Amino acid sequence: MKVLLLSAALVLATSTFAFADQNCADLTTQSDMNICAGKAYQISDAKLNKLYKQIQTRVKDDAGKTKLLVATQKAWISFRDAECKFSSSGVAGGSVYPFISSSCLDGMTQTRIKDLQGYLKCPEGDLDCPVPAAN
């Protein structure tokens, strides 16, 4: 019976960590949740940077669009950081702060990723899209 319970506990623990990237809130310690949320944000931020560079490449021949892209991204980063600072201010100084802050940063970054992906998928001739289609 003890072996069965130990086996079941190991399976549950393994499946919890296997899905850590999907839902950090399912982890059992605050430290693990904080680390998981931080890593999730780092992954999202790397993906965002890759997409941003792809867009930079597509607009590089248009100085005006390049300038607007840079200004927009800087403004978005300032907004994201301010929003997440405000959003997590209720737990500032607490052990859950890194989780709440990273989760906010990750969520907002995921939304921005979707926006940038949309720009990269514009069909040729789409007048609502500032990013030219890929050649």
Results as ranks from 00 to 15, higher is better:
residue 108 M to I: 15
residue 63 A to L: 10
residue 32 D to G: 02
residue 14 T to S: 10
residue 103 S to C: 08
residue 25 A to K: 06
residue 127 L to I: 14
residue 86 F to V: 12
residue 6 L to P: 00
residue 85 K to W: 06
residue 85 K to C: 02
residue 59 V to A: 02
residue 91 V to K: 04
residue 19 F to Q: 09
residue 12 L to V: 14
residue 17 F to K: 02
residue 80 R to S: 08
residue 130 P to T: 03
residue 61 D to P: 10
residue 20 A to C: 14
residue 67 K to C: 01
residue 55 I to N: 02
residue 10 L to P: 05
residue 74 K to M: 13
residue 47 K to Q: 14
residue 92 A to Q: 12
residue 86 F to Y: 12
residue 18 A to K: 08
residue 127 L to N: 09
residue 38 G to F: 01
residue 50 K to L: 14
residue 118 G to T: 14
residue 61 D to W: 04
residue 117 Q to S: 13
residue 70 V to L: 12
residue 57 T to A: 11
residue 64 G to T: 15
residue 50 K to Q: 15
residue 94 G to T: 05
residue 99 F to S: 00
residue 63 A to V: 14
residue 129 C to S: 07
residue 4 L to S: 13
residue 109 T to A: 07
residue 105 L to V: 03
residue 96 V to Y: 10
residue 8 A to G: 08
residue 44 S to Y: 02
residue 94 G to D: 03
residue 105 L to N: 04
residue 60 K to H: 10
residue 74 K to V: 15
residue 120 L to M: 08
residue 57 T to R: 01
residue 117 Q to H: 00
residue 3 V to Q: 10
residue 103 S to G: 13
residue 13 A to S: 13
residue 86 F to R: 07
residue 74 K to Y: 04
residue 8 A to D: 09
residue 55 I to H: 00
residue 44 S to T: 11
residue 74 K to I: 15
residue 42 Q to S: 13
residue 10 L to Q: 00
residue 55 I to K: 01
residue 121 K to H: 10
residue 37 A to Q: 01
residue 112 R to W: 03
residue 113 I to K: 00
residue 38 G to I: 06
residue 29 T to E: 11
residue 106 D to F: 05
residue 124 E to G: 02
residue 70 V to R: 05
residue 114 K to F: 09
residue 49 N to K: 11
residue 55 I to Q: 00
residue 17 F to G: 03
residue 108 M to K: 13
residue 18 A to Y: 15
residue 122 C to E: 03
residue 130 P to V: 00
residue 22 Q to F: 05
residue 65 K to H: 04
residue 117 Q to Y: 04
residue 17 F to L: 12
residue 123 P to M: 07
residue 84 C to A: 02
residue 51 L to R: 05
residue 53 K to W: 06
residue 135 N to T: 14
residue 112 R to A: 04
residue 102 S to H: 05
residue 55 I to E: 02
residue 88 S to K: 02
residue 22 Q to A: 13
residue 41 Y to A: 01
